[in-house]
Amino acid sequence: MTDKITPSQIFSERLREARKLRGYNQEDLAARAEMPATTIAHFETGTRKPSFESLRRLAVALEITTDFLLGRVDSPELAQAGDPLYRDIGRLSGNDREIAKDFLKMLADRNAKKDKG
């Protein structure tokens, strides 16, 4: 007997992974997606399945594609095209790319220092 992962299980795992990737707790995501936090909890435990509208709201709130949430893409990096920041960086050229890269590194370093205490 094979333990095949169902689409609902994939969605639950991907939603949790994307939420944590963005640094949100369930309440944060719920507020951004304009839905109750209990709904997020139900989606993550697999006790409820999202409607198309809920799926769309979650993808927008997480700035990630529905393909990642639904398991059509295996890596959140491959779903970056849904992230407006990623799309904007892709349109930069030359010196602007270097400035953006330096600025993003500075922000990441600042956040890393905050996380350490």
Rank of each mutant, 00 (worst) to 15 (best):
E77P: 00
A31L: 09
P50S: 06
I64C: 13
L21Y: 11
R87T: 05
G117L: 12
K49Q: 13
H42T: 03
N25R: 01
E77K: 00
R91F: 08
E34S: 13
L69D: 01
E77Y: 01
T2R: 14
D109H: 09
D88Q: 14
F11V: 05
R110M: 05
Y86D: 05
A31T: 06
K4C: 00
E17F: 04
E27L: 04
S8F: 05
T38N: 13
K113R: 15
D28R: 03
T66K: 12
N95S: 11
R48V: 02
V60T: 13
S93E: 13
R56T: 14
G46I: 08
S54Y: 07
D67G: 06
Q80A: 15
A30F: 04
N111I: 08
K101A: 13
T65Q: 07
K114I: 13
M1D: 11
L58I: 15
P7C: 07
E27M: 03
S8L: 05
D83R: 12
G94R: 15
F103T: 14
D109M: 09
F11D: 02
D74C: 03
R19L: 03
P50T: 12
N25D: 14
T38W: 00
E17M: 04
D74G: 14
R91Y: 04
M1F: 02
L92M: 14
V60H: 13
D74V: 03
T66G: 07
D83K: 05
T39Y: 13
G23F: 02
R32V: 02
K4M: 04
V73C: 08
Q80I: 09
P36E: 01
T47Y: 04
A59I: 01
P76F: 00
P76S: 00
F11T: 05
L21T: 03
P7R: 03
M35I: 15
L15H: 01
P50Q: 10
T39K: 10
R56W: 11
G90A: 12
I99T: 12
D74H: 08
S75P: 13
L78I: 02
N25T: 01
G90F: 09
V60E: 15
K4V: 10
Y86I: 09
P84N: 15
R87Q: 15
H42Y: 08
L78R: 14
A59C: 09
I5G: 01
Q80S: 10
Y86Q: 09
G46Y: 11
G90T: 13
V60N: 10
D102G: 11
L15T: 05
R48T: 04
E98D: 11
K49P: 00
A108E: 11
S8M: 03
E27I: 08
R16G: 00
G71T: 12
A108H: 12
S8E: 15
Q9H: 08
H42K: 12
S8A: 15
S8V: 07
I40K: 07
M35K: 06
K101Q: 07
F68M: 08
K116G: 05
V60S: 07
E13C: 02
I64Y: 01
T2A: 13
A112N: 09
F43S: 05
T66P: 01
A81H: 09
D88F: 09
R72H: 10
M106S: 12
F11A: 04
G23C: 04
I89G: 07
R14Y: 01
R32T: 04
A59Q: 04
D83E: 12
Q80T: 11
E34N: 10
K105M: 12
P84G: 08
K101D: 11
G46V: 06
